[in-house]
């Protein structure tokens, strides 16, 4: 059994220690907001926070996540139906299209704003390497600026 702390709740998980965190979140814990896109750490659809840092959970073996504070899209806001300013900006600017990549996109943006509360366009270019095949990037950039007050 591996002990995990996800969105502030402790879980005991029965899975092999080399299993990527992504699949444990999705299958063992039912946190399906974190998506599978490439399995190679390239697309960013599986982005979660590990001790506040954005990581690609398809590349994190379960054993490495033990003891860390894991945050998924489901735990980004307080959970009472309210949203973070970032998520509200996403709605205000109507960012998602199909929406599949957006959990990872928002988690990457949240980590960026934590590290760099007033990001420049260059900061956004460097941090936001997640892939969106619908091409929502213009609105992703605008929504990050809106949440940061750097419009």
């Amino acid at each position: 059994m591996v002990e995990l702390n996800v969105n502030g709740i402790a879980h005991s998980v029965d899975a092999a220690p080399e299993t990527p965190l992504l699949w444990v979140l999705r299958e063992n814990l039912g946190k399906t907001g974190t998506k599978f896109g490439c399995g190679a750490g390239v697309c960013g659809a599986c982005t979660v926070h590990l001790d506040g840092e954005a990581v690609r959970s398809c590349q994190v073996p379960l054993a490495d996540a033990e003891g860390a504070e894991i945050k998924t899209i489901e735990g980004l806001s307080s959970g009472n139906g309210d949203l973070t300013k970032l998520q509200q900006s996403w709605i205000d600017l109507q960012v998602p299209q199909c929406g599949y990549c957006q959990s990872g996109m928002i988690m990457a943006a949240a980590a960026l704003l934590k590290a760099t509360p007033k990001p420049t366009d260059d900061d956004i270019d460097a941090a936001m390497t997640n892939i969106c095949r619908c091409g929502t990037y213009s609105r992703v950039r605008a929504a990050i600026h809106r949440a940061a007050g750097t419009e």
């Binding site: 999705r26 399906t32 998602p96």
Partner: peptide, 26 residues
């Protein structure tokens, strides 16, 4: 404002890959 968007910013939107059934295998 699009009706599908709120569920796409907090992980609630259910895609094909998110289908979960009792006793489901992969």
């Amino acid at each position: 404002a699009r009706i599908d968007i709120p569920a796409k910013v907090d992980g609630r939107a259910m895609f094909g890959l998110d289908v979960r059934l009792p006793n489901m295998a992969y």
